[in-house]
Simulated assay, not measured.
Amino acid sequence: MVAVALMVTIIGEWSWWGWVVALTISVVLIGLLVAFILRTRRQRARDRAQQVSSAVVGVAGMSGTVLMPVSDWAGQVKLSNGDTWMARSTHGQRYAIGSIIVVESIEGATAVVNDGTRRRNDS
């Protein structure tokens, strides 16, 4: 409380140029703080994007087991690394619960799977 009263007394005695200097210093310090925060957030976002990208790349080619029947539009699989993914099949194939599948690719948050005997470009 005493510190606040002392600051009010000191600031009250400043002339107009003292206020301008104080305002300028405040604006510069706030600008530096905002720049630091934004830089840190951008760096964290880049780091997260790299982690997600490398995780998705590692999923392609991984085998797994069907948890919910997989068709060409829906399903769910559990991969050998323990991850559970929404899935869809290629070429109109259907896989029953317990079937072994292989992840062909990732499209958004969906694993595109097959039984490991077909490639995507096969007809």
Rank of each mutant, 00 (worst) to 15 (best):
R120Y: 08
V28K: 00
L79N: 10
R42Y: 14
R41L: 05
L29W: 03
S123R: 09
Q93N: 14
I10R: 13
T24E: 02
Q76H: 09
A49S: 14
W16F: 13
L38T: 04
H91N: 08
V70T: 02
A49N: 09
R39D: 06
R39I: 03
V28G: 00
A60V: 15
Y95D: 02
M86P: 06
Q43V: 01
S53P: 04
T40I: 00
G61P: 06
T90K: 03
M62Y: 03
T90L: 15
A3Y: 11
R94M: 15
G18R: 04
G75A: 11
T110N: 11
S71R: 11
A22C: 03
I11F: 14
A55W: 08
V2T: 12
N81H: 12
V102H: 12
W19E: 00
A55N: 12
G61K: 09
V70Q: 04
S71Y: 06
R42W: 03
A45V: 11
Q51R: 14
E107S: 15
R46V: 02
I106T: 03
A111Q: 01
D47E: 13
G108C: 09
R42V: 06
W19D: 04
S99T: 08
T110G: 03
V8M: 08
E107T: 14
S26L: 12
V113Y: 05
Q43L: 05
T117N: 15
K78F: 12
S105Y: 06
G82I: 11
A3R: 08
M86N: 10
R120F: 10
P69L: 04
G64P: 13
V8Q: 07
V59Q: 03
A5H: 04
T110Q: 13
A60W: 01
R46A: 10
V34R: 11
W14T: 13
M7Y: 15
F36Y: 14
V8E: 10
G12D: 06
R119I: 00
F36P: 02
W19I: 02
S54A: 11
V27F: 15
V66Y: 01
G75E: 07
A35D: 01
S99Y: 01
L67Q: 10
M86I: 00
M1F: 04
V112T: 00
V59P: 10
I25N: 00
S15K: 13
S123H: 05
V27Y: 14
R42T: 05
A109K: 14
R48V: 07
V112R: 03
T110R: 14
I25A: 05
R94T: 07
R88S: 02
I30M: 14
G31R: 05
G92T: 08
D72W: 00
L6K: 13
T65C: 05
D122N: 09
S26F: 13
I106L: 10
S53Q: 15
V66F: 08
L23G: 13
T117V: 02
M7K: 11
G58W: 08
K78R: 15
V27C: 02
R48N: 08
L79I: 10
G116Y: 10
W85H: 07
T90G: 05
G12W: 12
E104T: 00
A74N: 12
I101W: 07
S54I: 05
S63M: 15
A74V: 14
A60N: 10
V4G: 04
I106V: 10
L67K: 08
V57W: 06
G12Q: 06
G31A: 09
Q76D: 07
T117M: 07
V34I: 13
Y95C: 09
T90I: 15
I100C: 02
I101Y: 05
Q51H: 06
